[in-house]
């Protein structure tokens, strides 16, 4: 039990995820801060691919955060910032890539699998129900069966 505790502690120490890097920023407008945080959560870090640039400690992520900060303070729109990123790194940087022939599987996949799973569930349930219906005995059959078991015939 103690060993488990130690292991969990070690795992906790090994994952700095979520510990967003502290970077003091001077905002001219409180709304800019909100946009900044929303944007950096939506942009994927290319170095640590399973982290957003908000979570990543990679130097490139820090540079990109600074660029987002400067572009927001420079009056750029969210669309302009997203375009800046995709021009350089492709749709890959977006955690929500646009729907293109290339990403159709990504967008339609979950719905497709839910549909397949749902159909299988419905078919199984219906089949089970019809089997149960077939198994119920009429009162006369039950009496006859009981007689047979009791060995009257």
């Amino acid at each position: 039990m103690k060993a488990l505790g130690v292991t969990l502690l070690l795992i906790a120490c090994a994952c700095p995820a979520g510990a967003t890097v502290f970077e003091p920023r001077e905002w001219s407008d409180e709304r800019h801060r909100q946009r900044y945080h929303d944007l950096i959560e939506e942009l994927r870090c290319l170095v640590c691919q399973n982290q957003s640039i908000a979570d990543s400690d990679a130097e490139l992520a820090a540079d990109l955060r600074r660029i987002v900060f400067e572009m927001i303070e420079g009056g750029e729109s969210d669309e302009a910032i997203t375009a800046y990123m995709t021009e350089r790194y492709g749709d890959f940087v977006l955690y929500r890539p646009p729907l293109t022939p290339f990403t159709v599987a990504l967008w339609a996949g979950p719905a497709l699998f839910a549909l397949i799973g749902g159909t299988m569930l419905a078919v199984t349930l219906r089949r089970r129900r019809s089997r149960e219906d077939a198994g119920t005995l009429s009162a006369a059959d039950r009496q006859r069966a009981e007689r047979l078991i009791a060995g009257e015939d």
Partner: peptide, 13 residues
């Protein structure tokens, strides 16, 4: 030094 040209070239690794 700032890595800005690198970013314009989409350098990541």
């Amino acid at each position: 030094a700032e890595g800005l040209a690198g970013i314009d070239f989409g350098v990541y690794g």
